[in-house]
């Protein structure tokens, strides 16, 4: 049973790390603000989500699991809000230029 849990963890955390890497590469390589935000949200949403998913089988109990999930939800909320604000600021900057 613990082997299955460990395999889920390794697979999901590795996939999460891949999305973080891809998001970072996109942030560095993409040409403008909006596409960079697009890359960044992949790291935030999918990367963090997969890491949390992978850590869930290792959580000590229901309480720890809920804490992990709420970290992901708060990360989603903050990431989505900040990308909206940055995108609006970028569009505003373009229109006044």
């Amino acid at each position: 049973m613990s082997l299955v849990r460990d395999m889920i963890t390794i697979a999901a955390v590795s996939a999460g790390a891949f999305f973080f890497l891809a998001g970072t590469v996109g942030l560095l390589r993409f040409p403008d603000t909006l596409t960079r935000l697009h890359a960044l949200t992949k790291a935030d949403n999918l990367g963090l989500g997969l890491v949390v998913l992978g850590l869930l089988p290792q959580a000590g109990g229901l309480r720890d699991g809920l804490k992990l999930v709420s970290i992901w939800l708060l990360g989603l909320l903050a990431g989505a809000t900040v990308s909206q604000l940055i995108a609006r600021a970028a569009r505003h900057g373009e229109s006044t230029r």
Binding site: L74, L77, A78, T81, Q84, L85, R88
Partner: peptide
Amino acid sequence: GVLAFLARLLPPV
């Protein structure tokens, strides 16, 4: 706007 939305949603948490 989205900032006001966050400022309503996040403080209770």
